[in-house]
Structures are given as structure tokens and as C-alpha cells.
Design a binder for these strands. Structure first.
Lengths: 339, 339
DNA sequence: TTGTATGCGTTATCAA
DNA sequence: TTGATAACGCATACAA
């Protein structure tokens, strides 16, 4: 059987209340008994029962984490960031996958709340505004990652997608490109719109107008990027550079370009978004706008802990992406950089 | 405040015992009151408190999952497989990362046990035989994934690495290769040894003896594969084909080969292990021996649930990998398959 | 069929 | 400084 405070109390000849106090470093206890009880607890291999503690009204020391899919490398980093902070603060994380299903997401969040988690982090929510009524009823602090939702009960950490889109496109422009395409994502929602806005904005500032046929949509994954690039390759004139919604899309675009016999970046520059490790697997390695993914998770977790401890916390944090220059971009028509 | 069975009891004018029974479909209750109480519970928005249930002696309905890193795409799939089964059976999963640190792994497992999880799944354990004494004390069923450990309290699901190594090497031999190298992993432990054994075995059966300089070690990641391949490229004669410990290693090897100006597979065939999605990102797409990763996770979770429900379960399951022919392998000296 | 009393392991409240 | 008692929400042995 498991050792409880009662067992210790019996062994020490005191009440279980005293044991409880001794173990929690209560002020109102004599140093001697404290030490004595602690020694006994130690020798008996006592482990406090977190379930009983939780029932008593205290916290479960558990954070709920909801993610669409783990197979998306973007999320894994976020989760790692969360886990690191949680583990460092003695919290566990209860992980659930929503598979991009808004209904499932809602059920999961309610389930986590029922499970008495102290707080919840949702990455890439698909619930959008349908969240708001829930949140009020739930009575549990929730931090949303990369879901640009505002409202009374909403906390969030997100990357500035407009800035990122502008950064990527501006970089291509500075390289000398004028014919710049955008491969978006049908399933990208608000972040897709924002990256597209950044793209438009950068073009406008440079006095460029993108051809409508140079804006096509993928699905945020490799296959979608591949298909989108194939459509792009049929346009006349062709773009000399492509900004992609994310790295997976860009990897797909790269595959299609290489298949078509193009040299990248000599004939076509490609820039992605996210800063995935996977971008270094391909040849040429992918130039990209990196999102601070671990940090996204870390900040969300830290924010949640602040809230839980009643400390002041900002409600929304917006992070800026950074450009990672690798090999997939070059000035238009330059054959020097090709291999 | 949260609705409890007492609230329902008060509203229904019965004892909380009756409510408890009604909600759990107890036999000893009249259908009418059962229906009435259920309706009231529904209208009040009652949610049973799992913490109280757990304390009462029942299960926490939670599985602990320990993984080294999530950034390794191999593990993410495994975790997805586990999560899927767990979610389908109403279990939550408490995820912890060990970062390949055996001590941390031990602490985590003990922590999960203290948290009252019903069972634990450990993927790619680094603890090895040091586990055995713990397990007996823990009193919690544990399933190990891809950790070839046996012992009284050990359950496991693993892939047959000898078979996989043999499969990969045999495939290269059938393509006509005779000069076949192996890039292993320093950190691969037992699985590295086993894949190497499969490699040796296949060579021996074909009457081939590998040159010692054709067996080099990476680190199971892209960088290690790259470095290892560079060393391989300096050997004379060079191998015409390389079997890599895993796909990340193979991707690194591919990068190095392409950098060196080799055409893959015309000049060099490369085969990986794992069957990662990432293998399709590169050009040429990676031929590989696929491990059934989701299934690994699913089976581990199912095994654990069987044990928890007191149903009979095999103690060890060994899965076989399958060959996925993509584009990175061809007969030696064939320039047809190159692009 | 329903209700009373008790316990799960801990913390909180009040007395002593 | 310590102890007795109640409480958290639920389930169960026993009584009615």
C-alpha cells in the first residue's frame, strides 16, 4: 500500500494534522517535530497524493494543451516549449489532439476543464469566435497561440503575420525581384490573410502590383504547395520569386520547381515561413521567415502560470519573425548561386 | 460553483447515493427515478468530478507518456497513435519529455506514478536495465516502445530491427549493388546494433564482405548523416550504395552527396529507415524501410488498456518494417533514373 | 428500491 | 505548538 500522512502520524505518535503541517513547512510547528516527522516520512518513502490535494481544493498542477496535429512540425516545437516551462514549474501537461475539427476542439476543451486542469493552452484554434461564450462559462484561464481572437476572457501569444509577410516579400524585392507570386493556404485562415496582406503591402510600397494569377492557394502542406507551384509554372510571364505561406508549402513548391527542371534559386527564388528544421533537409536549403516557435510555447505557458499565480500579465503578446537566409533565394536571373 | 451530486440530490429530493446510482446506471434503481434524476443532472449541466472519482479509489483515466524529444518526427507519430487510442477510450495522456536524459527519465516515470496515472508508456527508453528494479516498486503497468528490454514487469512493442536492416540491405543487393556502406548512429544503442546485424547478415548471405571503412557512425540526425557521408566519400573505392540508420541520417547523407556533385541514385543509392514523411520532402524522394509508427503507439496504448482492464495481453509484440520504394535507389551505374 | 454512514488523502478551521 | 473535526466530491457497505 501507499504511505499516507496517517501512516506517518502513527509512526511518529502525532496527529495527521501535525504531519501535514510539518511536511508543508508550516510556521506553527516546532523545529524538532518538524525534523523528526520529515525524517520518518523520508524513511517511509512518503509521496504526497496529488489527487487528494487536488480534491481538497488546491490545484491539479496540470495544464491542458490542445493542438491540431503533432505531425505538423510547427506544433511539436510549440508543445516542447510549453512542456519545458511546465516541467520546470512542476506542472504536468495533458495533451489532446483536435485534428483540426472545431467540434472536437470544443469537446476537448470542455473535457480538460472537467478534468480540473488549472489552465489551458490552445495552439492554432479552429474555433474562432465560437470560443467566446464557452470561455466565460469555463472559469479556467485559457491562452490561445496564433489565434488572433480578442475578447474579455481571451489571452494570446501570436506571431505578427503581417510583419512576417512584409519581411519575406521585402527581402525578395531587395534582391531585385519584381515578379513575385504568393502561394497561400486554403486552411490558413486569419494567418494566411495576414501574411498575404504583408505581401501586398510590401509590393505596394515598392510600386509593384501583383498579377492575380500569381496568387494561388495550397493547403499548408507539401502536396498543396506542389500543386500550387505547378499552376504557377503555367502562367505567362512566370514569376521569378515565390513567397509561400509556410515551409511545408515551400518545400512542395521547391519539389515541383525542381521536377520542372528549374534551377533554384537561379531561375526561381523561393521563400517560406516558419523556420522549420525541415527547411534545411532540402537542397537548396530553404530561406524563410522564422517564427520563434519554442518561445511561442514558452511564453504561453509562462503567461498561464502568471495568471494562475494571480500575478499581472499582458493579455496579448505579439512576436516578430526573423529572416533566415539560406540558399533558396537569389537575385533574379543570377546563375552564380545555382549548383 | 460547480454542480455536484448533492446539488442534484437536493433538486430531486433524494439522497446523493441515489443520484450516484442513477448516473452510473446501477441495476438497483427504478427506471423512473433514474430518468428523472438524469434529466435534472442534464438540466443543471452536471459534470462528474474525475478528481473525486480518482481519489475514491477508481482510476484517474490518465496514461503517462514519456518521450525523448518531440522534435524527432519519429516520436510524434508514435504519440499520435497513443493519443488516438487513449482519446477513443476516454483516457487522457500526460506527456513528458526526457530529452534523452536517463536520470530525468527515471524522475519523470516516478513523478507520473506519483501523479496516479493508470499506466505508463515509454518510447525509446534510455534507462535500459536500470529500469527493472524500479518497475517492481512502482506497481504500475508500463509498456516500452522500441526498447528491447525483457524482464518480469516489462511489456513492450517494438519493430524488428534485424529484419529491417536485412530488408534494406537485401533490396540494395537485389538491385545489383556489391559495395554497400552502413551509416549507423552512435546514439542508436540496441536498435543500431540490430540494424547493423541485419545488414551484415544480408551481405553474408550474398557472399559479400563489407570493408570496415564503409561502416561509419552518425548521430541519428541530419548533421551526423552529412558528416558521416563526407567521410564515406573519401574512401577508395567508394561504395555504390548506402544503408542509413534512419531517415534523418539518410537525408543528411543525401545532402552531402548532392553537395559533392554526385547524382542520386545514378551515382549513389541511398536507403533510409523509419518511413518519415520528411523523406518525401527531398529530391530524390527517399527510399526507406518504414516502421509502422502510428501502429507502434496504438498497439502500446491498446496493450496498456488490456492490462488495465485485466484482460490477457501478450507481453511483447514485434512488428516488421516494410520497404517503401521511392526514388533514391537504382541499380549501380544506372544513369537512367537520374534527373 | 432508497437512504445512512463511512472512507479515499489531504488541507483548513477551530479549540485546546 | 498541537490536535480534533470537517470538508473537498464521489462511491460503496450496510441498513431500512
Amino acid at each position: 500500500m501507499r504511505v499516507t500522512i496517517k501512516d506517518i502520524a502513527r509512526a511518529a505518535g502525532v496527529s495527521h494534522t501535525t504531519v501535514s503541517r510539518a511536511l508543508r513547512d508550516s510556521e506553527e510547528i516546532s523545529p524538532e517535530t518538524r525534523a523528526r516527522i520529515r525524517a520518518i516520512a523520508e524513511s517511509l518513502g512518503y509521496r504526497p497524493n496529488p489527487v487528494a490535494r487536488a480534491l481538497q481544493g488546491r490545484r491539479t498542477q496540470t495544464l491542458g494543451v490542445v493542438v491540431t496535429r503533432l505531425s505538423d512540425p510547427f506544433h511539436t516545437e510549440v508543445v516542447q516549449g510549453i512542456e519545458r516551462v511546465a516541467q520546470a514549474h512542476g506542472y504536468g501537461i495533458l495533451l489532446s489532439l483536435s485534428h483540426e475539427d472545431p467540434d472536437k476542439e470544443r469537446v476537448i476543451v470542455e473535457l480538460l476543464a472537467a478534468k480540473q486542469v488549472d489552465g489551458i493552452i490552445v495552439a492554432a484554434s479552429r474555433l474562432g469566435s465560437r470560443y467566446l461564450p464557452m470561455l466565460e462559462a469555463l472559469q479556467i484561464p485559457i491562452v490561445l497561440i496564433n489565434s488572433h481572437q480578442t475578447g474579455p476572457y481571451v489571452y494570446s501569444v501570436a506571431t505578427d503575420n503581417v510583419h512576417g509577410g512584409h519581411l519575406a516579400t521585402g527581402y525578395l524585392i531587395r534582391l531585385g525581384h519584381q515578379a513575385i507570386a504568393y502561394i497561400g493556404s486554403r486552411r490558413g485562415g486569419r494567418s494566411n490573410q495576414d501574411r498575404y496582406r504583408g505581401y501586398r503591402q510590401a509590393l505596394r510600397e515598392a510600386g509593384l502590383t501583383p498579377r492575380p494569377e500569381w496568387v494561388v492557394q495550397g493547403d499548408g502542406r507539401v502536396e498543396g504547395g506542389e500543386a500550387a507551384m505547378r499552376r504557377l509554372l503555367e502562367t505567362h510571364p512566370r514569376p521569378t520569386a515565390v513567397f509561400c505561406y509556410n515551409d511545408l508549402t515551400a518545400i512542395g513548391a521547391l519539389k515541383a520547381a525542381l521536377r520542372a527542371g528549374l534551377r533554384v534559386p537561379a531561375d526561381l527564388s523561393i521563400i517560406g515561413f516558419d523556420g522549420l528544421e525541415e527547411g534545411t533537409y532540402v537542397t537548396p536549403a530553404l530561406t524563410t521567415v522564422a517564427q520563434p516557435r519554442q518561445q511561442l510555447g514558452r511564453l504561453a505557458a509562462e503567461m498561464l502560470l502568471e495568471i494562475l499565480n494571480g500575478r499581472p500579465s499582458p493579455k496579448h503578446i505579439l512576436l516578430q519573425g526573423t529572416l533566415i537566409e539560406r540558399e533558396s533565394c537569389a537575385p533574379p536571373g543570377s546563375s552564380t548561386a545555382s549548383r
